[in-house]
């Protein structure tokens, strides 16, 4: 039996909204330590990795490891029926073919339950190496969202260069060119408004803006985002979801033919 209860149900709603356009389906792998998901986009150039820890839930029980195949568009339809203040409980019997979602209003005067049909999904699990990156940038997630949104209106790809001067995002397209440079800035009093650049060596990589823009759909989940870059390797974009876990995106760089 699997059961996970979260008082702040809006977090689950935001998570699924952040992922559903990038990945259409994937397995929720549940075990006694929590719920994880690893999924690729349809062209297999980016990878999403979601980790929700058992102790981040208000109640968590998982007697047996299970892979629950989820269609995210369908899960999104069901979660749209939950109120923002609702407590959400996920439930499944061992080897079940449905996942039950129970929504309880804050004052417990409305209780609803929905069964989501599960799918059988073959998925390969990739090993993400734990490595040191040449540059790590922590910045307000809203700032990242604004940069990639603005640049998407100008070009298709972005060159991200990290140097001791700061981190520069450059693009070009039919209308012209654009450069946005962010500097290390720890003066804001609130830590979530700071930009922290940890540079071991300069690095410059090109990425498809469409994906970076898609990752920013996770902005409502976290005040800060971390970008990690190393030459010839995928960019790693990470949002910490409070005490519950994290959502991580990896995107392969564009390289010259």
């Amino acid at each position: 039996m699997f059961e996970a209860r979260i008082t702040q149900g809006s977090v689950l709603k935001k998570l699924v909204e952040a992922l559903k356009e990038l990945v259409t389906e994937g397995n929720f792998d549940v075990s006694s330590t929590g719920l994880t998901l690893q999924a690729m986009d349809s062209s297999h150039v980016c990878l999403v990795s979601l980790t929700l820890r058992d102790d981040g839930f208000d109640h968590y029980r998982c007697d047996r490891n299970m892979a629950m195949g989820i269609h995210f568009g369908n899960l999104s339809k069901i979660l749209k029926c939950a109120g923002n203040e609702d407590t959400i409980t996920l439930k499944a019997e061992d080897n079940a073919d449905t996942l039950t979602l129970m929504f309880e209003s804050a004052n417990q005067d409305r209780i609803s339950d929905f069964d989501l049909k599960l799918m059988s999904i073959e998925s390969e699990h990739l090993g993400i190496p734990d490595q040191d990156y040449s540059a790590e940038i922590k910045m307000p997630s809203a700032e990242y969202q604004r940069i990639v949104r603005d640049l998407t209106s100008i070009g298709d790809t972005v060159l991200i260069s990290a140097t001791k001067e700061g981190i520069k995002f450059s693009t070009s397209g039919d209308v012209g060119t654009a450069n946005i440079t962010l500097r290390h800035n720890t003066t804001p009093e609130k830590p979530e408004e700071q930009t922290i650049i940890d540079l071991k060596e300069p690095v410059a990589l090109t990425f498809a803006l469409r994906y970076l823009n898609n990752f920013s759909k996770a902005t409502p989940l976290a005040p800060q985002v971390k970008l990690s870059l190393t030459k010839d390797l995928p960019i790693f974009v990470e949002y910490q979801v409070g005490d519950l876990g994290n959502v991580r995106f990896f995107l392969a760089p564009k390289i010259d033919d």
Binding site: H44, V45, E124, L126, I128, P129, L233, P234, P253, I255
Partner: peptide
């Protein structure tokens, strides 16, 4: 420009 698939960076675990 070309783009490799993500599995070419991260092997199967």
């Amino acid at each position: 420009m070309k783009q490799k698939q993500i599995s070419q960076f991260f092997g199967a675990s």
